[in-house]
Design a protein around this nucleic acid. Sequence first.
DNA 1: CGCACTTTATTAACGTGTTAATTAAAGTGT
DNA 2: ACACTTTAATTAACACGTTAATAAAGTGCG
Lengths: 115, 115
Amino acid sequence: MLADAGVTEQQWRVLRVLDEEGPMDPTSIAERAVLLLPSLTRILQKLEDKGFVTRERDDSDRRRQIIRATQAGRNVIAANMDTSRRILTDLREKLGDERHETLIELLNELTALEE
Amino acid sequence: MLADAGVTEQQWRVLRVLDEEGPMDPTSIAERAVLLLPSLTRILQKLEDKGFVTRERDDSDRRRQIIRATQAGRNVIAANMDTSRRILTDLREKLGDERHETLIELLNELTALEE
DNA sequence: CGCACTTTATTAACGTGTTAATTAAAGTGT
DNA sequence: ACACTTTAATTAACACGTTAATAAAGTGCG
C-alpha cells in the first residue's frame, strides 16, 4: 500500500502525525512518530522534495521550524487511511482480539523495561 | 556488550551460527541467522576483514563458498556467550516466565501470518 | 552438443537507525 | 555585556533491510 502511495512507512507516520495533530516542530514530530532527529531531518527533506510538507522558521525562536502538511500531503493520508485501517483490523481479526491485545501489552512492557 | 566485543548484532549472529553448527555456505547462514543474502554478503566481508571468518570455494560446486569461523571468531563468542545468556535470562526474569513465553508465541504467530 | 533456465553470490541504489560532531540561536550568570 | 551552557536541527559516518540487476556456474532437455 505504501509503495503504491509513493511513501515509506516512516514518511507515512510523519504525514499522519501532521494530519492528525496539525503543524509542529521537528522535535515534536520525532517524539510522536518515534523517530530520531537525524532520521527525521532526512525524511522531512524527502517529504519537502515531494511537495508533501512545507517548512517555516518559528519567529519567536529561530532555531525552531514549523512543519506543515500540504494539501498533497493530506491527500496521501486521505487516499490510504481506509486501506491502512483495514489492514490493521484484518490483522487483529486473524490474531484474535484477546491475543492482539496481549501482544501489544507485552511489547509495551518490554519497552518499559528498557528505561 | 556487542559494542565492547567489536561486532554488530548481525555479525554476532553469524558467528554464533558458524560456531554452533560448523562451516557452511552463505545461503545456509542467511537462513539460520535470518538475514537476506545481500546483507550477509556485506557482513561476511566485514567479518573477513576483522579476521573472524575465512572463505573457501566449494570445489564440487564452484558457485558455492564454505565459510568458517577462525579461532579469533570463536573467541569472540566464547568471551561473550555467558554475558549474552545472562542478559536473556535477566530479561526473562524481569518479564516473568509465563509472559516471556507468551510473547515469543505471539510473535511467532505474527510471523506465521505473513506467509 | 547447444541453449534456455535455474541457482549462488555479488553489486547497486535507496532509505533508515544510530552515535558523534557541528552549527546557530537561546538562555544564564556574574 | 560577555563568557558559558543548553537547545534545535543538521551533517557525517557507518551498518543494515530491501528490491532489482548482474555475473558466474550448474542443470536439463531437445
